[in-house]
Computed example of a mutant assay.
Amino acid sequence: MSIPFDIPARFMAGLSSGELQRFGGIIKDAGSGQIVGHLQETGVLQSVLRSGLSFDPTGVTGLIGVAQNAAISHKLNAMQAMMGTLQTLQIATLASSVVGIGVTAASTAIILQRLRGIDQRLERIEGTLAELPRQWQDMELRKKLLTMSTSLERLQEAEYRPDAESVARAEEERLNYVFGDLHGGLCNVVIEAKIDPALLQCLLAGLSLSADAQFKALLWLDMKEAAGKRAVNQFAKLRELGFRMPRHSMAERLAGDGAQAMQISSDFSEIRMRAASQPQLARTLIAQGINGREFIDQIQNEDTQPILILPYA
C-alpha cells in the first residue's frame, strides 16, 4: 500500500515559531496539545551519516567526524538546514545511538556497527579502571551486548527463512530480557556514590538500542497493539530509572562534572520521550490500517527525504 507520508516542509514555520513542538517522535500543537504527526528519520539519512561521518557510537563525545567529500557535505548541509527547524533535533543527535526519533530506520548493519563501537569503548574503559565496580561485573554488560548482536543478526536474516515469524518472535523476546537486565542493573548503579560517566553512557546506549529493536521487531511482525503495549511498559521502567538519577545528584556522583551530568540527563530525557511517543504511533498505524512491515520497509527504503512525517489520524 502507499503510506501517506508528508515531508516536513509544511511544518517548518510552526516549528520555527514555537506553534508546533516536538515530543520524542511526535509533533504537537503547542496551544491545544493536539498531535499533528509522527516524525520519522529514513534510510537515506542513516545512509548519509554512515558513509560520510565518523561518530562515537555511545554518544559520549557526540559527533567527532566530518563529511568525507563535497557531495556528502552538501547533503548534510541541506539536511541540517531543514532539521534545524526541529528545535533540538540535530545531525549530531541522530548520529548518536542513544537517541533518535520514530522507529529506527538504521539497517541492522549500522546498529551492529554501533554495538561494536560500544563494546570497544567499554573494553577501553574497563582497562583504565583499577577496580571495576562489582555491579558492573555482575551485569556482564559485554556479554549482553553480544546477546543483542546475535539477536539482531537473526532478525536480519529472518525474512529470508521459511520460519521468519517464529525467529522474529524468539529474538524479540530475548531482546526484552536484555532490556530488563540492563534496566535492573542501571537502577542499582545510578544510586552509587561514584559513577563513571562513560560506563553509564554505554549502559544507556545498550538500553536504548534493545528497546528500539523490540519495538521495530513487533511492528515487523505487524503486532502493532503489542508494540504499543511494550513501549508503555518500557516507558514505565525508564520513568522508574529517572527517579533514581535526578540531575542535581548525578552531578555529584559523576565526580562533580555538571556538564556531563547535563548531557546524560538530556540524552536520557530524549530516550524517555521517544518511548512515550511510540504507543501513539502504533495506534495511528492501527487507525489508518497500515501494515507494520510495510511501514518499516518504506522508511528504510526512502532514498530522497531524510525525514518523513506520518500525519495523525
Rank of each mutant, 00 (worst) to 15 (best):
I3P: 06
I3A: 01
F5S: 05
F5Q: 05
D6I: 08
I7A: 13
P8W: 00
R10Q: 11
L15M: 01
S17P: 04
G18K: 06
G24W: 03
I26P: 00
I27L: 06
A30C: 07
A30P: 04
G31N: 15
G33A: 06
H38L: 01
H38F: 10
L39E: 05
L49C: 12
R50H: 12
S51L: 09
L53A: 10
L53Y: 10
S54H: 10
D56A: 04
G59E: 07
T61L: 12
T61F: 11
G62W: 00
G62E: 00
L63A: 10
I64K: 12
V66S: 15
N69A: 04
N69T: 08
A71C: 08
A71Q: 14
I72F: 11
K75P: 04
L76Q: 02
N77S: 13
N77P: 03
N77V: 10
A78E: 13
A78L: 11
M82E: 15
T88C: 11
L89S: 12
L89K: 09
T93N: 12
V98K: 09
V99N: 08
A105T: 04
T108K: 03
I110E: 03
L112E: 06
R116K: 15
R116S: 13
G117T: 07
I118S: 03
Q120G: 09
E123A: 07
R124D: 11
I125S: 04
I125T: 07
E126T: 11
A130N: 12
L132D: 09
R134N: 08
L141C: 03
K143L: 14
K144F: 10
L145Y: 06
L146H: 14
L152A: 05
R154D: 07
Q156E: 14
E157M: 11
D163C: 00
A164I: 08
V167E: 06
V167C: 03
E171Y: 01
E172F: 10
E173P: 07
R174M: 10
L175A: 02
N176G: 15
L182I: 14
G184P: 07
G185S: 12
C187N: 13
V190K: 02
V190A: 05
A193W: 13
D196S: 08
A198D: 08
A198L: 05
L200K: 03
C202E: 00
L203E: 04
S208M: 00
L209V: 09
L209Q: 05
A213M: 11
A213Y: 00
Q214T: 09
K216E: 06
L219H: 05
A226W: 01
A226K: 09
A231G: 09
V232Q: 14
V232K: 10
F235L: 15
R239E: 15
M245T: 00
R247Y: 04
S249K: 12
S249V: 09
A251D: 01
R253C: 01
L254E: 02
A255K: 14
A255G: 11
G258R: 15
A259I: 00
M262S: 14
S265A: 03
S265Y: 03
S265T: 04
S266I: 04
S269N: 11
R274I: 05
R274Y: 05
Q278P: 02
Q278E: 10
Q280S: 15
R283G: 05
T284V: 09
L285G: 04
I286Y: 00
R293Q: 14
R293M: 12
E294R: 12
Q298A: 07
T304A: 11
T304C: 10
Q305D: 15
L308G: 05
